[in-house]
């Protein structure tokens, strides 16, 4: 009987595993191996270079690591401000409020909009010549702050980060809200009978139960934000002068210029960094769970 158990169990995972192996793993492995070659994507000859690409990237490619830092900055901002905002909004909605449906719908509009629209519209908002942002600033007397937000190397990265957070907080909001909604109301009632106010309730009831959800949201934020590309491409193309270059846009540059081996190697290194970050996350969340 134990044998039957195994086979029919396998049926659960078989379709997914089969599909994944064919359509994802196979292309993945084929592309992965390019990292030890130099290849332009066209000629029938590939030149084996061993770890040369990796060594060049780790030791000599300043722009790659700068792009990692840029992505890291945006990710940190997203982890803190974006998710904090999502959490606050989710908590307020969860507590019950009028026009709940309206707010829930509206907050999800940014994630639904395609990258094309978002890039275009925000470019117009930030525009140094016509932009609404500068117009608003001059209405409230802050003309001095007006600048070409996306062309000024001091403000470019932050400006793009804000758009990313604007587009992204809706996801965190939904996941956090669905997590909050699964906490049984009795727990809150019980704790308020015990004399806890809203803040104590939040700290002792909500947070512990939400840790797995927090973990999901933060890992998704890290993975999603570090891989930011569409917005960069439509708003700044990595400019001004490389101030908003991020790993994916940099990898894409190499790929468009037919240096596939190098581009692939960069992606692998990038993946390793993300992997380490994820493991760090898992360890932190396990520790918090114990507490």
């Amino acid at each position: 009987m134990k044998k039957d158990y195994h086979i029919s169990n396998a049926l659960f995972v078989l379709p997914a595993v089969l599909m994944f192996a064919i359509f994802t793993i196979y292309p993945f492995v084929k592309t992965f191996q390019l990292s030890v070659y130099e290849w332009d994507g066209i000629s029938p000859n590939m030149k084996f270079v061993g770890f040369k690409n990796y060594i060049d990237i780790i030791l000599a490619d300043k722009i790659f690591w700068k792009s990692m830092t840029n992505a890291g900055v945006i990710t940190l901002l997203a982890l803190t401000f974006q998710n904090l905002l999502a959490l606050i909004l989710a908590v307020i909605i969860d507590r019950g409020i009028k026009f709940e449906k309206f707010f829930r719908t509206v907050y999800f509009i940014p994630p639904i909009l395609s990258g094309v629209v978002v890039g275009l519209v925000w470019k117009w908002i930030y525009d140094g010549n016509y932009g609404i942002l500068n117009t608003i600033l001059s209405y409230i007397g802050l003309e001095k702050c007006a600048t070409s937000w996306l062309s000024n190397p001091k403000t470019a990265l932050l400006s793009v980060a804000i758009v990313h957070m604007w587009k992204g907080f809706g996801w965190g909001f939904i996941i956090l809200l669905s997590g909050l909604q699964t906490i049984p109301r009795e727990l809150y009632e019980a704790s308020s009978i015990d004399g806890a106010d809203s803040f104590k309730q939040f700290y002792y009831v909500t947070v512990p139960l939400m840790i797995p959800i927090f973990f999901i949201v933060s890992i998704l934020t890290i993975l999603g934000t570090m891989q930011i590309f569409d917005l960069i491409y439509s708003m700044t193309r990595g400019g001004p002068a490389g101030a908003t270059e991020v790993p994916i846009s940099y990898i894409y540059r190499y790929m468009s210029n037919n240096e596939l081996g190098y581009a692939t190697a960069m992606a692998v290194i990038f993946g390793i960094v993300l992997f380490l970050l994820s493991i760090l996350q898992i360890k932190i969340s396990r520790k918090l769970k114990k507490v």
Binding site: P27, F28, K30, T264, A267, V268, F270, G271, S278
Partner: peptide, 12 residues
Amino acid sequence: PLIVPLPGTFVP
């Protein structure tokens, strides 16, 4: 594959 964003996997 979620973590390693290999470029050009669409070719294979």
